[in-house]
Amino acid sequence: STLVRVAKSASTLGIAIEGGANTRQPLPRIVTIQRGGSAHNCGQLRVGQVILEVNGVSLRGREHRDAARIIAEAFKTKERDHVDFLVTEFNVAL
């Protein structure tokens, strides 16, 4: 797995995720990276990567909306000017 630090360089994070506990994709997977968003500007996130942790918080066992909320709040908080993602190329939960 890889730790990717995404600076909040744009007003949006700019990723779409699918998956979460109790779905076919048990951990959130990146399905889109929008051009011009912070994630795209960072240059290290890729479509297909699975998000294991956000700012050290594990997404394992979290349902889709809960995982999405955690990511959204990590981007929104003014406590940090970045979001740390632990990602992997592999579907470790499958």
């Binding site: 700019g14 779409a16 699918e18 076919r24 999405a68």
Partner: peptide
């Protein structure tokens, strides 16, 4: 186990 997995629903997609 494989059959059980196939019964799991697809996930919605959220843009963040």
């Amino acid at each position: 186990v494989r059959e059980k997995r196939l019964t799991l629903p697809p996930s919605e997609i959220t843009m963040l």
